[in-house]
Design a binder for these strands. Structure first.
Length: 220
DNA sequence: AAGAGGATGAACT
DNA sequence: GTTCATCCTCTTG
């Protein structure tokens, strides 16, 4: 099946959780500094503005940093984490809804060489090239300058394509880097990845594998 | 004006 | 498993 640019409507007709799951298997593409990079999205996390204490826009509060989250679905939200790491997010929902999907890892399918150069990675460590949100954004040449762009714009340097492929098995677990201070939101099973994919990031986190456990720990 | 904390990543033991 | 470099953003006073 040929890949097709994901149309603007898609980002408005999915809630942030189904969007995070359905983005798995789709293709992220950047054309930056004359280099085309493409990768299959293999790991995502959902963030929901209205009631999610792990989200920048919790309580639908607008700040200088997060204002793009309130923009229309299909917008590119990039912010800098820990002062140095760019994070690439897909804004979901109508204008005024501050939901977004963080892309945490992709499997490279085009431009691996330039990606490894950008990251200063040797062949021995190639699996680290696009694993982890900061790493993949750097590999694709993405930085804060692209905040506010549109994934669905045919002339956009950063785009998402659907290719009709559905992942066979999707892991659902809690998100990475959530502090205990945010309470039960930290345990929401809003991290998704393609089971068994070697490009998925492998950060430190408690591995709750039973969904029954989640339901006791959080109210979605 | 100052301090706390962070949607990380790398390098350790 | 652990620590820590690094600096931006938000909150508070």
């Amino acid at each position: 099946m040929p890949k097709t640019l994901l149309h603007a409507e898609w980002y408005l007709t999915h809630d942030v959780l189904s969007a995070a799951k359905n983005l798995l298997g789709m293709i992220l593409r950047s054309e930056i500094d004359g280099h085309v990079c493409e990768g299959i999205i293999v790991e995502t996390e959902a963030y929901r503005g209205a009631d999610d204490r792990g989200c920048h826009s919790y309580g639908n509060k607008i700040t200088e940093r997060n204002r793009t989250m309130f923009d229309i679905g299909g917008s590119v939200y990039v912010y800098i984490c820990y002062g140095i790491h760019p994070m690439l997010n897909v804004v979901i929902g109508n204008s005024g809804v501050a939901d977004a999907v963080l892309i945490r890892a992709v499997e490279p399918i085009q431009g691996l060489k330039i990606m490894m150069e950008r990251r200063d990675i040797d062949s021995e460590n190639r699996l680290k090239t696009t694993s982890g949100p900061g790493n993949l954004a750097n590999a694709f040449g993405i930085n804060k300058l692209y905040d506010g762009d549109k994934f669905f714009d045919p002339s956009s340097p950063i785009q998402i394509f659907s290719n009709g492929i559905k992942p066979s098995s999707i892991y659902e677990g809690h998100r990475v880097g959530m502090s205990a201070r945010i309470g039960t939101c930290a345990f929401r099973p809003w991290r998704f990845y393609i089971e068994g994919n070697v490009w998925v990031s492998n950060p430190k986190h408690i591995d709750y594998t039973q969904k029954t456990k989640f339901s006791k720990l959080c109210n979605i």
